[in-house]
Write a protein that binds this DNA or RNA. Sequence first.
DNA 1: GTGAAAGCGCTAACAC
DNA 2: GTGTTAGCGCTTTCAC
Lengths: 345, 345
Amino acid sequence: MSETVPRPTLEAVAARAGVSRATVSRVVNGGDGVREALVERVRRAVEELGYVPNQAARSLVTRRHDAVAVVIAEPETRVFADPFFARQLRGISKELTAHDNQLVLLLTEGRADHARVGRYLAGGHVDGALVFSLHLDDPLPGLIQRAGVPTVFGGRPGWSDGTSGVVYVDSDNRGGAREAVRHLLGLGRTRIAHITGPLDQTSAADRLDGFRDVMADADPHLVAEGDFTPAGGERAMRELLGRRPCLDAVFAGNDLMAAGALRVLREHGRRVPDDVAVAGFDDMLPVAEQTDPPLTTVRQDIEEAGRLMARLLLRGLDGSTAAETPSAAPSGVVLPTTLIRRASA
Amino acid sequence: MSETVPRPTLEAVAARAGVSRATVSRVVNGGDGVREALVERVRRAVEELGYVPNQAARSLVTRRHDAVAVVIAEPETRVFADPFFARQLRGISKELTAHDNQLVLLLTEGRADHARVGRYLAGGHVDGALVFSLHLDDPLPGLIQRAGVPTVFGGRPGWSDGTSGVVYVDSDNRGGAREAVRHLLGLGRTRIAHITGPLDQTSAADRLDGFRDVMADADPHLVAEGDFTPAGGERAMRELLGRRPCLDAVFAGNDLMAAGALRVLREHGRRVPDDVAVAGFDDMLPVAEQTDPPLTTVRQDIEEAGRLMARLLLRGLDGSTAAETPSAAPSGVVLPTTLIRRASA
DNA sequence: GTGAAAGCGCTAACAC
DNA sequence: GTGTTAGCGCTTTCAC
């Protein structure tokens, strides 16, 4: 730890290379329109002095930051119990890096943090924001839109008003759910139950819709609400078993809940998949492959979703006007899902 | 998406409040030495105009950024297969937020990224860095130290030279391992095997050392190297079973490998814990509680470790000279671990 | 206590 | 092609 050496400025490089600051600036920023000989001389001076441009000074005049905020609202610890966000972050990071942008991570929990995030975004520290809005009633999206920062949402936002110009990336939750349920149906199962996620999240609601698309006339008692946690899955499974002991398949809203359901089924002496077929959602690897039996589940390419979010935002940023005309923006992108068949169904 | 409104400047606020820019600046930065009446007037003007200071301009003169980089080297996907980093990030984020600092996330994979990170850190974008150096031969730590940025490492750095002034936070891997092995011993087990993590990581090496502390004269064939993944755990377990079928306990270097070992043991008809007792490390919840039987394991408070890293860095940053005299800095902080007893041992 | 003025390091017209 | 110049929005002496 020590930082005493004053870093060299453009001025210093210019002096060393015997040119003006403007020329150095040009070289540093690509070097177009500068004689090759000079470029060379400046490059050498930069090298020798170990010059690195001061980003603050640059931002001050360009009003660009080459930085993007990633806002993750995380009111519940659940978010960190699964590698979901980590993987998406990685996709985002890769894409941002490829375009020389930095990733500023804003983790929030609670209202106090919301204000802070709003202030930060409004403060013009970043060129844009990638926002994960988990809940229907989340005030964050509103705050962010008001901050006037170009934004791409992860997951379909749940609020109803002003959804028109909103850009988001989502997985095909509904379609994926349909596919899973159809698969169970194809196995000859007829009494298929569904354990939903928390229904104030669009992903959970959409999966339930997918389930209903296929099981239009399903017994309402075959649906139980969980919370995307293993414990919630256990609870819901017990409930279902109590209400409809005759069930022969379960589609869980995610893999974690499926794992919980599996345990309860075993407790009750039901064999999987012989007595009850079980399917999950996410293909969350450390879980889906480790359960006994391994889970049949719906995979979403979450890393690609992250990458796409970043790409969309970046495109909007330098796409000049494109980003500034909400009406013209592509509203939402929905990524396909794949059914992964393992032993549980 | 739309950002056309030019944000108000200090100047504008000053005009509105009928004071000078200097006064507004003072108020915005705490308001000491300004008459209460004026403070009030300025505050109101700030409010009315929705003024937010331009951080770039401020940084340009103060040379502070109130931002900290978090560097995560992630050559292997393993890192994202477990919620480990997510949880630590959250601890870091909480602490940084409490001190009004931003978190800039730098994810790296491969050498190209190293150069980028080095450049970024040297570029003076952030006041300090929190670095996770996973491997013994990682060039990153060196690069970073050369960049002259105050740094705190997560996990004991593995390189041998110049370890003196290095500040780091680590879990008591060795002590935790000892406790786990002693527990197995206390269960009356005598032929205790160990599945290590990749030994180029200090955490894995330290856990092995802990194992050896207790099992000083252990049969070398009772140790097999894994890679912290479930598949690696399976492989190592098979190896061990082949070499020493008589083993009656296994201490795995982490929970993921323990889960793999559990599966192999079941395959081979060994009952856990009756025939073979199994212990893990990490207390990685979605895994440790879900295995069958649930894992006895060593818990480390990873969120607290993250928080501590941030605290240490921040303290060094405003501790003026404290941070600049490497010799005076506390070299390393080691957090305690706890044995969590579940059904597997 | 408050204001005036001088930059922080850089880019972007605009001359030459 | 290259240099000159004028700020970007803020903090911070230094007078008053």
